[in-house]
Simulated assay, not measured.
Amino acid sequence: MRKIYSLVALFLGLQCIVLAKTDTVQVHSDAMDKDVPNLIITPSGYSSSTTYPSVYLLHGAGGDYTTWARIADLQQYADRYGLIIVCPDAGVTSWYFDSPIDPKMQYESYVASELVAWVDDHYATKPDRAYRAITGLSMGGHGGLYLGFRHQDVWGAVGSTSGGVDIRPFPLNWDIAKRLGSYAENKEVWEENSVINMLHLLDGKTLDIIFDCGRHDFFYDANVRLHEKMEERNIPHDFISRPGVHNAEYWQNAIAYQLLFFNSKFEARKK
């Protein structure tokens, strides 16, 4: 009888353990009244009996929820650091705004509120900002800092790689005008929604910040200006400048540093 009980206990224990996998999930957005696809990567040995930090990776313009999985071996990082990695879809050129002119482009509400709540309800995350990070590439780099700065109650660590941190020099590019209206007629809206103008939201204590950009990237000048403004205001951050252009080879390298950074912050919070 004791042997039977042992086998039952073993079986029940195994039910809590799931092999590493990548899930494609549809999450309904009330804000946009549509279902949105996402990739969710869990670490090997994922178990519902424990909890894991989570990192949200945002794609760039022209990309989708599969972009990061095609650039980097996300399973390797999920396993190495014991992370749940979430890759949301955000439309081809949403810029992660809640668009004031397009009700089907409310991706700030979707990612920062609806998706985070859904992931915490359906996966064994640590439902605490201290163990939740967000970053992204290009448009998603803008999104990582934009959403992180505006929702410091949701994320404790934020980042960007090759991010469009100042949208104002690009009034005719990447459908930004379709999300905010034309720059000529809506200058104030553009100013308010440029990451480089959002440093007044930061107290220099709440967020851990990392961002980088290749020195031959068309967004490089804006990233340097963001770094300099943060230094002027004594806002702690890690800024990395290295050779590189706006491409997948650069982002594959950059994400390794950023996930190491996030993991170091998660580990420090355990002590």
Rank of each mutant, 00 (worst) to 15 (best):
M1R: 08
S6H: 11
L7I: 15
L10E: 10
F11D: 03
Q15H: 15
Q15W: 09
Q15F: 14
I17H: 13
A20C: 14
D23I: 13
V25A: 06
Q26I: 06
M32A: 08
D35L: 10
D35F: 12
V36A: 06
I41F: 06
P43A: 01
S44T: 14
G45C: 03
Y46S: 08
T50C: 05
T51P: 00
Y52P: 01
P53S: 15
S54D: 03
V55D: 14
Y56C: 01
Y56Q: 05
L57M: 13
H59G: 02
G60P: 12
G60F: 15
A69N: 11
A72H: 04
L74F: 13
Y77S: 09
D79I: 12
D79Q: 11
R80D: 09
R80F: 08
L83S: 05
D89G: 12
A90P: 01
Q106C: 06
Y110D: 06
Y110F: 14
E114R: 00
L115W: 02
Y123H: 04
D128P: 10
R129P: 04
Y131K: 04
R132Y: 04
A133K: 00
S138H: 06
M139K: 12
M139Y: 13
G144K: 03
G148M: 11
F149P: 04
D153G: 10
D153Q: 09
A157I: 02
V158Q: 02
V158P: 00
S160G: 05
T161A: 15
G163D: 04
I167E: 02
F170P: 01
F170Q: 07
W174M: 13
I176R: 07
K178I: 09
R179F: 14
R179W: 07
L180G: 07
G181P: 05
S182F: 05
A184N: 10
A184C: 06
E188G: 08
E191P: 10
E192H: 09
N193K: 12
V195R: 15
V195H: 08
I196A: 03
M198T: 05
M198W: 15
L199R: 04
L201A: 06
L202S: 02
L202M: 07
L202D: 01
K205W: 06
T206Y: 07
D208T: 00
I209F: 02
I210H: 02
C213K: 00
G214W: 10
M230I: 08
E231R: 14
E232H: 08
N234I: 04
F239C: 04
S241K: 12
S241Y: 01
S241H: 03
R242P: 05
G244S: 12
H246M: 11
N247E: 12
A248Y: 12
Y250S: 09
Q252M: 12
A254N: 10
A256S: 11
Y257W: 15
F261D: 04
F261L: 03
E267S: 15
K271L: 09
